[in-house]
Design a protein around this nucleic acid. Structure first.
Lengths: 171, 171
DNA sequence: ATAGTTGCAAATAATTTGCATGTTA
DNA sequence: TAACATGCAAATTATTTGCAACTAT
């Protein structure tokens, strides 16, 4: 089910009537290379490719992300940011995300219960389970105590993540 | 915490330095009126308002959704569709969603474990938990057996939901 | 009266698509 | 060589924003 090397990708593609291309291999390699816990959106992936001197168009980036997500190679993550994030889908290492809505840092965590709950639920509704994601929307305690969501200063920097605010309508 | 009537909304708004307006009250009422299990995206909400003869601009719809989500009145849902959905946030009736990536039907379900897992996780990472969502990405068994994702006919109609395909790249 | 809010239209962001050209099996 | 994939630019979709006019407190 999970495909992590070029040969297996090629086989999977061919089986479905698709073809192996340099671009697809390159994009797969990027995901294999980034550190565990890191997920990319289309723009970030495109920038990495540019940096590496690869000339792959934005369209191809999007098309490849969609294809690989549909094939089950990538996991499509939604963090309510207005764009999707992707990471390698490794069912054996299923994990979930806690995300700070203020500074956008994410924390990965595991829980064996989630997969069990998900499997049961899908089964009892007669669905095939493809992926399950428990997403926690949180704020750092530090920001919360500082008056989040409305009284946090514009130039707030999260002491936990060192990141500044992602968005805020002035009060 | 949860605000379900105009008076309480007004109080919450004032406390934060915001004001009660006819538009905000109307939008709250729409969410109170739609059936349980229904969630709306910005466009759907806008259409409902139009239908009801309310003249509320698209900007106001978006601004109100953002504001109410940040206030905790609405829950922001991401179903990997490229746009957000919203529903009233009722912590006492916390539920989660199973969604068919093929026909887009959603099934609500509850699980007391999820909230417990989420609370523990947030606490141990020193975050304030705002919302937690377990989302199952599934396909109807019927579609899966019919050859999803690549061999499903273009004109496939899900026998379970009566819906047709949401998207599909031809093979 | 003052600060917050709305509507409109223009701007931005994210993603998709048509089509000519290039590539794979 | 036939079917598939890519790149480019234009199109679409979703959402945000500037600003003048309006409204709640």
């Amino acid at each position: 089910m999970s495909i992590y090397n070029a040969a297996a990708l090629k086989a999977e593609l061919r089986q479905r009537g698709f073809r192996m291309t340099a671009q697809r291999e390159t994009i797969l390699r990027v995901f294999q290379t980034i550190p565990q816990g890191k997920h990319l959106n289309a723009e970030e992936l495109y920038n990495i490719l540019q940096h590496q001197g690869e000339k792959i168009s934005v369209s191809t980036v999007y098309r490849t992300l969609n294809l690989m997500a549909k094939m089950g190679i990538l996991r499509e993550l939604e963090f309510a940011e207005g764009h999707k994030h992707y990471e390698l889908n490794k069912p054996s290492e299923l994990h979930h995300h806690l995300i700070c809505v203020e500074c956008r840092q994410t924390v990965e965590f595991k829980s064996d219960w989630i997969a069990k709950i998900a499997k049961n639920q899908a089964k009892s509704n007669e669905f095939e389970l493809l992926d399950c994601q428990l997403t926690l929307h949180c704020v750092c305690l530090e920001a919360f105590e500082e008056g989040w969501p409305y009284c946090l200063p514009e130039d707030w920097v999260c002491p936990k993540s060192q990141r500044h605010r992602s968005s805020c309508e002035p009060h």
